[in-house]
């Protein structure tokens, strides 16, 4: 079964499956222990190293399973974990498991432009005002009409001494927003990179002077970014291209890493994101097989009742018109061949003397004949006329 087409072959909206977009991705940590080596951590010894790769690895045989920061002696002191996802994803959740007592302040950010700019998704703190200058999140979600980064309670410590940071994109968005119909929500869930900022460890006091009394280190594992490869409803899977980049396996006449534009020649109507009820496939221009290129014209699209806006370019086989649907001047439509046939248009072939011009009727092929001349190409004298010696009046009445 093709998720992007129904049983009859008609396009329908489709989305890739929910995956952990962080799995196997490189994590950039601003601090990692083991350089220089200490008693507890040695970056050059695989048995005692705690690299950031442990945050997104599938797990396995290595003894240490947790990333660990350098020993830090000041708070607040931000340690950041950044995960480039490789392409745009539509987030569902983000989670991070702490291997020791979870921090009391954590910020979660996202980028939509591969790390050039960052916006917050949420904050998690017992001191929202102190660390982030925000009020604690209202119990019923954002006060405004759109999603916003709220300050939620700090990650809860668990009986095993660790803790879990868990964030759902729904946490920051008002109830009732639908992804298909809300561009604001679509923007909110889109991310190319995720960044976790560990701001304040748990064991330190919450004093404003924030001097640390003892060295500490952050430690975490299982950084998960649950989401769907963003394909705008036009692909059911993402694949790696020849350069190893993740791209959507675009359908519906679309192309691009996120299927965010129409393929060349598929511009009979403007690109749109697919929804659950309408595929909004990009349509090929109707050029009757006589052109390889076309362009979109918004005015024509509006005039057609938002039906068709493609204009064929460089019609071949002596055709002309917006859809290469009629014959160019000097040619006429040959009814013996289909409009899509390369022989659909035949040269008028008007007689250089008998015809009054070179352009024939586009439907019948009849050339304009001089007086007394007849025939489709005006190459014979009509009954009652005979050929003269004058090329201006080639046929004269028979005496």
């Amino acid at each position: 079964a093709d998720p992007c087409h129904d049983e009859g072959g008609a396009p329908r909206g489709c989305v890739p499956g929910l995956v952990n977009a962080a799995l196997g991705r490189e994590v950039l940590a601003s601090s990692t222990c083991g350089r220089p080596a200490t008693r507890a951590c040695d970056a050059s010894d695989p048995r005692r190293a705690h690299p950031a790769a442990l945050l997104t690895s599938a797990g396995g045989t290595a003894s240490p399973v947790c990333w660990r920061s350098d020993s830090l002696t000041q708070a607040p002191l931000n340690v950041t974990l950044t995960v480039p996802l490789g392409k745009a994803f539509e987030l569902v959740f983000v989670s991070l498991r702490f291997c020791s007592t979870p921090p009391t302040s954590v910020a979660l950010l996202k980028s939509q432009d591969h790390g050039r700019s960052w916006v917050p998704l949420g904050f998690f703190s017992s001191r929202c005002g102190l660390d982030y200058g925000r009020l604690p999140a209202p119990t019923n979600g954002p006060a405004g009409p759109g999603p916003e980064a709220l300050c939620f309670p700090e990650p809860q410590a668990q009986p095993d001494g660790g803790g879990l940071l868990a964030f759902s994109v729904q946490d920051g968005s008002p109830p009732g927003l639908d992804l298909d119909s809300s561009p604001v929500l679509q923007d909110w869930v889109t991310a190319t990179d995720i960044r976790v900022v560990l701001t304040r460890p748990a064991m330190l006091g919450y004093t404003r002077d924030s001097a640390a009394m003892a060295p500490y280190a952050y430690s975490a594992t299982e950084l998960q970014v649950g989401g769907r490869c963003k394909c705008n409803g036009h692909a059911s899977q993402c694949l790696q291209d020849t350069q190893g980049h993740l791209i959507c396996d675009c359908r519906h006449g679309t192309e691009g890493a996120d299927c965010s534009r129409c393929k060349p020649f598929y511009c009979d109507r403007p690109w749109q994101r697919a929804t659950a009820w309408e595929a909004h496939a990009c349509l090929a221009c109707d050029c009757n097989g006589h052109a390889r290129r076309c362009r979109f014209n918004m005015e024509l699209y509006r005039l057609s009742g938002r039906h068709s806006g493609g204009v064929c370019l460089n019609c071949r086989h002596n055709t002309a018109g917006r859809h290469c649907h009629y014959c160019r001047e000097g040619f006429y439509r040959d009814p013996g061949h289909a409009l899509s046939d390369r022989r659909a248009c035949r040269a008028c072939d008007c007689h250089p003397v008998g015809a009054a011009g070179k352009t024939c009727n586009q439907t019948t092929g009849q050339c304009p004949c001089k007086d007394g001349v007849t025939g489709l190409t005006c190459n014979r004298c009509a009954p009652g006329f005979q050929q003269s010696r004058s090329p201006v009046a080639p046929c004269v009445k028979t005496p």
Binding site: P352, G375, N379, R380, C381, Q387, R389, P391, V392, C395
Partner: peptide, 23 residues
């Protein structure tokens, strides 16, 4: 009655040299 096709050789182009089609 089907008349014969126009015979280009019968035309006198003396006064209409500029109208004479290229052959």
């Amino acid at each position: 009655e089907v008349m014969p096709t126009l015979d280009m050789a019968l035309f006198d182009w003396t006064d209409y040299e500029d109208l004479k089609p290229e052959v």
